[in-house]
Computed example of a mutant assay.
Amino acid sequence: MPINVWDYLREYDELRDEILATVDRVFRSGRLVLGQEGVKFEREMAAYLGVAAGVGVNSGTDAIYIALAALGVKAGDEVITVPNTAVPTVSAIRTLGARPVFVDVRDDDFLMDVEQVEAAITPRTTAIIPVHLYGQCVDLDPLMAIARRHGLKVMEDCAQSQGALYKDHQSGSVGDASSFSFYPTKVLGAYGDGGMVMSDDEAVIKLARSLRFYGMETVYYSERHGYNSRLDEVQAAILSLKLPRIDGWIDRRRAIAARYNQALAGTGIVLPRENAHSRHTYYVYVVEHPTDRDGVLERLAGAGINCNVSYRWPIHIMRGSADLGYREGQFPVAERKAQRIFSLPMYPLLKDEEVDTVIDVLKGVI
């Protein structure tokens, strides 16, 4: 049988009875949208992060643009982020009519190079999105200091960092707001789409609740332009069921990463680095091959090891971003990494013998 980079079926087999009972309970409740399951999960997520409140929305992408809108970002503003993120980060900025402004990433951890941020600030800059990529947090203390000096908002993109720690803080609890994705592949994944806006700021939460529901605060009366973006009751209930398990799942991810680290040291594969200020969750286990990434992937696939690349193209060189005016060569670290990186199989129910098979096959093909 092939070994895939991710799989949910074993998790479903393990939780099937509880999930089906949960879904049945929701269906029998008579309320499928904006009911008590969503309220319960919002409170549980807020408690897990240690922030005031959360607002469940339809997707991680929606969580980004609703969070930005609730922070006051508007058309014509500039938002600083990185080019090696997933398309949704930038898509959300542009949905608001704002302009993404990129800074490069660091060579050792793929994360925002905070030292480049200040030079990218202009009079139109209103916010910064640090992307906590692959399961590890951007160095937030110096970033927050820059933001405070310039009166900017910080919105943490936590789509890949549920459960990660920055020093003693949960990912998503440091900035002015944060966004989470519950896409099925995530550390905390739904059985469909979903997302959440998190914040300690009561005004941000209140506005996000209005924006997700057509700008309404009372039924059928819109106070402002808004959207239709609601986390449904079935997904909220499933996520509540899974939330207490994620720390154990993160421990298992870290154990798999340690197994990879030990066995692959000295092979010529560049291994991921965990920063001293972080607890890495290894949402994905990203390695580099400096000369023949695509050849390695082809040979792995031929042996039944199906890996992934997150991501092959930095945003600024995609045709869909051509109108932003960037050119190839402007962000050399992100561009170089995109040619070298790939992700090994990583999910909590991956068996040790499967990890060992991946290691042995990888050693053979390189």
Rank of each mutant, 00 (worst) to 15 (best):
L344M: 04
L243R: 08
R327S: 12
Y220Q: 08
V26H: 05
F342K: 01
Y191R: 13
A301V: 04
S210M: 15
I341D: 03
G54P: 02
V309Y: 05
D139T: 03
I93F: 11
A75L: 06
K74P: 00
R253I: 00
V284T: 14
R327W: 01
R312S: 02
E18A: 15
L111Y: 08
S59H: 11
G97H: 08
G172C: 04
L9Y: 05
V73F: 11
D113E: 12
I305Y: 01
T95G: 12
R279Q: 14
T89L: 05
K186R: 15
Y221H: 14
D7L: 04
F342P: 02
T126Q: 10
L152R: 02
L32H: 10
K337Y: 08
I146Y: 02
V154F: 06
T125N: 07
R299A: 14
A322C: 05
R319A: 13
E156A: 11
L15K: 13
Y65K: 05
R253Y: 14
N308I: 08
E37P: 06
L324F: 02
M346A: 01
L264D: 02
V358S: 01
V361L: 05
C307T: 14
A119P: 09
S59A: 12
L140K: 08
Q330D: 10
A127L: 01
A263N: 06
N4T: 08
R106I: 13
L111T: 13
A237S: 14
I3D: 00
Y285K: 02
L243E: 06
I128W: 08
T218P: 00
R25G: 15
P244M: 03
I66E: 03
D17G: 12
S91V: 09
I256M: 00
R25Y: 12
G163S: 07
E202F: 07
A303E: 15
A46W: 01
S210H: 10
V287W: 00
M112Q: 03
I238H: 03
A120M: 10
V154S: 08
G302D: 15
Q136M: 13
H132F: 07
V361W: 08
G72T: 03
N84S: 15
A67C: 04
E202H: 10
V309W: 03
L207M: 12
F110M: 07
A236N: 13
D7K: 02
T281R: 00
H225T: 13
K167E: 11
H150T: 09
D108Y: 10
N261K: 11
D201H: 12
D107N: 13
I66S: 08
I129V: 14
L96N: 06
E11I: 02
Y283N: 14
F102A: 03
T61G: 15
V361G: 00
Q170I: 00
L297F: 09
A98W: 03
D193R: 09
V55I: 11
N58G: 10
L34V: 07
L68V: 01
M1R: 04
D200V: 02
T281C: 01
F41D: 09
Y65V: 07
R312D: 01
R99S: 12
A208F: 09
N4I: 05
F27C: 12
K153N: 08
Q330F: 10
G295H: 03
A67M: 02
D193P: 11
V154L: 04
E37R: 06
W313G: 01
A145N: 04
V219L: 14
Y48M: 06
G248S: 09
